[in-house]
């Protein structure tokens, strides 16, 4: 997938991984791995950006004698997912446009 397109999708994917329940870094990577590949080093700046934009909040939970950071989606984060879904029609239109244009060119 195109790197720029992937970049935008990643944020929404991470938020989606938090939609049903709070999660932690490693589990976010595992949960989203069937759909999109996120490495630890990619996830880190995404989480930081989402946190500073108030799309998610962070809290620590003790686990096996260490602290694990859990991420919780905020209302703003849920809104971001909604906006992404709403904007998808537009993406589909563009997709259609690209498909029809390039196919027409091929036929010519």
């Amino acid at each position: 997938m195109d790197a720029q397109l992937k970049h935008g999708l990643l944020e929404v994917c991470v938020l989606t991984a938090l939609y049903k329940e709070d999660s932690y870094g490693y589990r976010i990577i595992k949960d989203t791995s069937p759909f999109i590949k996120i490495s630890e080093s990619t996830l880190y700046p995404i989480l930081r950006r989402l946190e500073s934009g108030n799309y998610l909040s962070v809290y620590s939970v003790e686990h096996n004698g260490r602290l694990r950071k859990y991420y919780k989606i905020t209302d703003l984060g849920k809104k971001k997912i909604e906006e992404f879904l709403d904007g998808w029609d537009e993406v589909m239109n563009i997709h259609n446009y690209i498909v029809t244009e390039t196919r027409r060119n091929e036929n010519e």
Binding site: Y24, G25, Y26, R27, E40, N64, R66, L67, R68, K69
Partner: peptide, 13 residues
């Protein structure tokens, strides 16, 4: 923060 993050990732793996 970064060290904590990567420490947690390694521990989880």
């Amino acid at each position: 923060k970064s060290l904590n993050y990567y420490s947690e990732m390694i521990d989880d793996r």
